Computed example of a mutant assay.
Amino acid sequence: MRFTKEQEGFAAAVRAFCAAECGTLAQRDELTDGGKLSNSPEILRKLAAQGWLGVSIPEAYGGGGAGMVDECLFLEETSRGLAPITAYSTGLTAAQTYLRYGTEDQKKDILGGICAGELEAIALSEPGAGSDLGSVRIKATLDGDHYVIDGQKTWTSAAHVAKHLLLLARTDSSGPKHQGLTLLIVPTDVPGLEIRPIETMEAHTVNDLFFTGVRIPVANVVGEAGQAWKHLMRGLSVERLIIAAMSLGAAERSLDDVLGYVKQREQFGRAIGSFQAVRHRIAELATEIAYAKAFVYDVAARIDAGEEDQLTREGSMAKLKCTEIAKHTALEAMQLMGGYGYAREYGMEGQVRKALAPPIYGGTNEIQREIISKSLGL
């Protein structure tokens, strides 16, 4: 698709912001306590002040009132620019459910907060329920005008920095497993909730959650009690496009960095990028990324045109392809950079670490292949 001049200007402005505010390793270290944190409140505040957070959220709730094409441009450029705002995408995913099923008060509170730089989280997975979310067991028992929540969630991104959780809980066990599920807004400072970090190869991002007698008002139900499965579908479908746009930006950053390296690094009296074995690998990476970008923005444009309900397959395709390309590009770039690819100073080792998780979260790529194959009648 062709971008408008306004969209091209927007992407260029975000790119320039990232270069100025977090373009060097020293800047990013200062913003993230030496790489220990995955989110910078300072950067989020500055992005909010620009009016760029929630660019796809309606103006009535503090957003930019644009569409998913503009949102994907923002996600692509902030990912490419290594902006430490990982949790923003989690809140953006939650926003899809609030937009369609939330009350006006919920929308004003949650969506307005996202646009102002506040972070939100979604608590779905459990120790026994990952890809099979219908097997969720955490209980929310009705007690007067409150639900009492007991159980555990795991792999919950951004819970430690979020203002609220969008919690998937079982409120009725009498029917099939996809029925009796309810979405509840849970403030992260509520008594009875323990948030425990999970150590991974990246900065602190994911958490275990433990609920012990947590009381949440009935007014915190999002949508209709017992109907969470259908409420989640829009958010999860758009989430795949969100992940795809971020992975596209990550792949572009890896290509940018390795391209700069092979043009400058000399061996045998000439730049290593002049050797056919190197330049052909770079050409293949650039081609894959270009095709992925065209597809991502085609899907985004179709969502903006009101076709989102028919885009389950395309969203899965975008997520599958872009996350695999980001991983492949980072690994290829590390190989082409030799020993320097492992050095933190050059950044590629961080790109590799960041590229390994997206094929797993947001619905594993194995699940995406299942969704695609079923849509083909297999």
Rank of each mutant, 00 (worst) to 15 (best):
residue 304 D to K: 02
residue 369 R to H: 09
residue 51 G to D: 03
residue 197 P to D: 02
residue 160 H to V: 07
residue 29 D to A: 12
residue 1 M to E: 11
residue 217 P to V: 05
residue 231 H to P: 09
residue 43 I to P: 00
residue 361 Y to A: 08
residue 74 F to E: 01
residue 196 R to A: 13
residue 281 R to W: 02
residue 97 T to F: 15
residue 177 K to P: 15
residue 275 F to K: 06
residue 201 M to H: 13
residue 229 W to Y: 13
residue 46 K to M: 07
residue 273 G to C: 07
residue 377 G to I: 07
residue 356 L to C: 08
residue 305 A to N: 05
residue 79 S to T: 13
residue 59 E to S: 10
residue 249 G to N: 05
residue 108 K to T: 11
residue 308 E to N: 10
residue 137 R to Q: 15
residue 130 G to F: 12
residue 304 D to V: 00
residue 195 I to L: 06
residue 353 R to C: 14
residue 181 L to Q: 03
residue 51 G to C: 03
residue 34 G to W: 08
residue 365 N to Y: 06
residue 378 L to M: 15
residue 182 T to P: 06
residue 162 A to R: 01
residue 310 Q to N: 10
residue 349 E to H: 15
residue 228 A to M: 02
residue 5 K to R: 13
residue 263 K to R: 14
residue 218 V to W: 07
residue 110 I to S: 00
residue 370 E to A: 15
residue 265 R to K: 15
residue 95 A to K: 03
residue 374 K to I: 10
residue 331 L to G: 09
residue 370 E to I: 15
residue 344 R to N: 12
residue 210 F to I: 13
residue 351 Q to T: 15
residue 323 T to A: 03
residue 41 P to H: 01
residue 27 Q to D: 04
residue 199 E to M: 15
residue 132 D to M: 14
residue 71 E to G: 10
residue 234 R to Y: 09
residue 317 M to D: 01
residue 19 A to L: 11
residue 85 I to T: 09
residue 208 D to M: 07
residue 175 G to T: 12
residue 121 A to Y: 02
residue 240 R to F: 09
residue 157 S to F: 00
residue 151 G to D: 00
residue 115 C to I: 02
residue 340 Y to V: 11
residue 44 L to T: 06
residue 176 P to K: 11
residue 86 T to L: 14
residue 48 A to V: 01
residue 325 I to K: 00
residue 288 E to W: 07
residue 159 A to I: 01
residue 337 M to W: 04
residue 87 A to W: 04
residue 141 T to C: 11
residue 214 V to C: 09
residue 18 C to T: 11
residue 374 K to T: 11
residue 259 L to I: 15
residue 147 Y to V: 06
residue 140 A to W: 01
residue 250 A to F: 09
residue 180 G to Y: 02
residue 107 K to P: 00
residue 206 V to C: 08
residue 268 F to P: 06
residue 17 F to A: 08
residue 142 L to F: 08
residue 61 Y to M: 07
residue 87 A to E: 09
residue 362 G to E: 04
residue 124 L to M: 05
residue 141 T to S: 11
residue 198 I to H: 05
residue 166 L to R: 00
residue 378 L to A: 15
residue 198 I to A: 08
residue 72 C to K: 03
residue 284 E to S: 14
residue 37 L to T: 10
residue 224 E to Y: 05
residue 278 V to Y: 04
residue 187 P to Q: 07
residue 178 H to K: 10
residue 350 G to L: 09
residue 377 G to L: 10
residue 58 P to N: 03
residue 321 K to M: 14
residue 275 F to L: 12
residue 16 A to I: 11
residue 6 E to A: 10
residue 64 G to C: 05
residue 243 I to K: 10
residue 45 R to I: 06
residue 283 A to H: 08
residue 373 S to E: 14
residue 347 G to A: 01
residue 328 H to E: 14
residue 258 V to Y: 03
residue 326 A to W: 02
residue 19 A to T: 08
residue 146 H to E: 12
residue 192 G to Q: 06
residue 30 E to L: 14
residue 89 S to T: 14
residue 91 G to Y: 01
residue 130 G to T: 11
residue 250 A to P: 01
residue 288 E to A: 15
residue 43 I to T: 00
residue 312 T to W: 13
residue 5 K to H: 15
residue 244 A to K: 00
residue 342 Y to I: 11
residue 78 T to G: 02
residue 61 Y to Q: 03
residue 170 R to H: 03
residue 51 G to E: 05
residue 293 K to I: 04
residue 117 G to N: 06
residue 14 V to I: 12
residue 58 P to D: 07
residue 295 F to Q: 09
residue 233 M to T: 13
residue 314 E to V: 05
residue 76 E to N: 05
residue 326 A to N: 04
residue 26 A to Y: 07
residue 45 R to C: 09
